Simulated assay, not measured.
Amino acid sequence: MTRDVLVAGEVLIDFIPQQSGPLASVDTFSRRAGGAPANVAVGLAHLDVAPDFWTRVGDDAFGDYLLGVLDDAGLDDTYLDVDDEAKTGLAFVSLGEAAEREFSFHRHESADTRLEPGRIDDDALAETEWVHVGGVTLADEPARTATLDLVDRARDAGATVSFDPNARPELWAGTDFSFAETLGEILERVDVLKATPDDLAEAGIDTGAPEETAEALLDRGPHTVFLTLGGEGSVAAATADAPWTESATTAVHDGYTVDPVDTTGAGDAFTAGVVAALVDGADLDEALGFANAVAAVTTTAQGAMTALPTRAEVAAFRAEQP
Rank of each mutant, 00 (worst) to 15 (best):
R3N: 14
L12H: 10
V26S: 08
V26I: 15
P37V: 00
N39F: 01
V42W: 01
H46R: 14
L47I: 07
V49S: 13
P51M: 00
P51H: 01
T55Y: 02
D60V: 08
F62T: 03
Y65Q: 11
Y79G: 04
V82W: 03
V82P: 00
T88E: 11
F92H: 08
V93Q: 03
E100G: 10
R101N: 15
A111I: 12
L115T: 13
D121P: 00
V136K: 01
L138G: 08
P142E: 08
A143V: 09
D156C: 07
G158F: 06
A159N: 05
S162G: 07
P165H: 03
A173I: 13
F179C: 11
A180G: 06
G184A: 09
E188D: 15
D198W: 02
P210S: 13
E212D: 15
L217Y: 13
G230N: 05
S234C: 14
A251D: 02
V252W: 11
H253A: 14
Y256F: 15
G273D: 04
A276R: 03
D283R: 05
A304N: 04
T306A: 15
L308Y: 03
V314L: 05
A315N: 06
A316R: 09
A319H: 02
A319I: 04
E320K: 06
Q321A: 15
